[in-house]
């Protein structure tokens, strides 16, 4: 049975940080259209710090590594994204537990716990034009694929596809949470920056958590 190791999780964080760095200006431009033009800079600062906090330090367990990422994001990102991404990783880490490697079904359950943490912290629902619109379909697609008996790599790929589709679906939405909501109808026609960074997070997971240390 394949397992997700702490090395895989570290590769996930490393690739997420790299994707955020590469998309820093694009995230900021999206945020400038409907928010306050800081999402790229904030996520870049946070993911850089989170990677530095876990890279090279031998983590005691899968859960400890991911929780450390969450605590670092809470302390470094600020805005709404700090508590939301921080809560996501803290809940995922808690659910992953104290083993060095975790079965795919347990990783999927941990991602579900992370999503629920984000929903609780942000009080956002599907369709509010937030990161939930990328994360929620991704977690559901991953669970469905595993339930259908498909391989872990395919479940992760399905999650990435669902996150990208969810991200794209935010464009016509009218925002009901966060600063974009103050625009009312004028928020429609713009892709949500939070859903965009969340899709990067899932894309990074798809390339790393299936093992093989890809994406370093």
């Amino acid at each position: 049975m394949e397992q997700v190791s702490t090395d895989d999780l570290l590769a996930w964080i490393r690739l997420f940080a790299r994707l955020v760095a590469e998309n820093r200006d694009a995230l900021t431009e999206l945020d400038a259209a409907i928010g306050d033009a800081d999402h790229g800079a904030n996520m870049h600062r946070g993911t850089t710090a989170a990677l530095a906090a876990v890279d090279g330090a031998a983590p005691a367990s899968a859960g400890a590594l991911v929780k450390k990422v969450g605590m670092t994001l809470v302390s470094t990102v600020g805005g709404a994204s700090g508590p939301l991404y921080g809560t996501f990783f803290l809940r995922v880490g808690t659910a992953l537990g104290e083993e060095a490697s975790v079965a795919p079904a347990d990783v999927a359950a941990a991602l579900r716990a992370g999503l629920e943490g984000v929903v609780t912290r942000g009080r956002a629902e599907a369709g509010d034009k937030t990161m939930v619109d990328a994360l929620a379909p991704a977690v559901a697609a991953c669970e469905e694929a595993l339930a259908a008996g498909r391989p872990w790599a395919e479940a992760l790929a399905a999650a990435a596809d669902a996150a990208a589709a969810g991200r794209d679906a935010t464009t016509p939405m009218v925002a009901r949470k966060g600063r974009a909501s103050y625009l009312g109808e004028r928020s429609a026609g713009h892709q949500d920056p939070g859903a965009t960074s969340a899709a990067l997070l899932v894309a990074a997971a798809a390339q790393t958590l299936a093992g093989g240390g890809a994406g370093g």
Binding site: V74, S75, T76, V77
Partner: peptide, 8 residues
Amino acid sequence: EVFTSPVP
């Protein structure tokens, strides 16, 4: 940071 909430 500018226009960004302080962290906890």
